[in-house]
Amino acid sequence: MTGKPFMIAAFAIVAGLMALVPQLGSEYWLGVAFIVAMWIALIQSWSLLSATTGYISLGHAVFYGIGAYVLVVSLDWMPVPYALALSGAAAGLLALVVGLPVLRVKGPYFVILTFGFAELVKNLVMLLETRLGQFSRMIFDAPSLEALYYAMLVLAVIATAIAAWTAQSRFGRGLAAIRENEVAAEAIGVPVTRLKLFAFVASAIIPGIVGGLLVLRTSYFAADQAFDPAVSFTIVTTAIVGGLGRVSGPLLGTLFLVILSELLWARFPQAYMMILGGLLIVFILFVPQGLAGLIRKGLGRA
């Protein structure tokens, strides 16, 4: 158990350093740090459902998108903090409503269902926007990048803290039992349906707020971009590359992803996506424990 205080200290130092980034006075680095915090928040949230229970969601962009949409619409009526809270609430509510039927579907069928469901919602929102005569929406008086960054960093820290707490909690143990064998879990008293639903809702709320923050950052909303399946794809790939089932996995995965994306995304977007696709295949087949597992193994051998 000596590793635990060490890990907490390491996470605190990383968070502290990230909190200092605005002091650099560089718009570029602040933008990069914003993206880093965003992916950490998204992937830790996704892991809460998918890494712990094994219900792999390929449709998390739906929560991110709904958060973005709710924010851009509600901004006309309320100040930013309330609108952000509403984004998170809307994403959580969507998860709550669809959770019961969707979580009855298991294994690979759940995976593909989440993908189809996200596309369905995307098309519904696109239709709604067309009906309303809106093809895209602009935001004019968004908060400063610095303010948005601090908000995103707080989300990343909260998501990481929830992941760390879950890993050793009764709740997390119940979810692990569900992942290992749902029938046996239920037979030893784990309220399977309720726990899955709870994890699903919890994993949706932060991505909803993240979607809201990103819209404020870009000052622009278009449904096909907000619900872009590439977001879901990147979440899954980064989580698997980083390593499922460890709190440090999403951090390592994000670091790797952001470096790769800074090098490639702007100039060769398709090549970047192709490399991600390749990494996904290689890691799932040959390095299922991910970067976190590799590093742990490396340290253990040294």
């Binding site: 390929l58 995976v111 794809f233 698997i240 996506m273 696709g277 996904l280 295949i281 799932i284 087949l285």
Partner: peptide, 10 residues
């Protein structure tokens, strides 16, 4: 499914 998903993106 995830493997073929990667293939699809490629």
């Amino acid at each position: 499914l995830i493997i073929f998903y990667g293939l699809s993106v490629i």
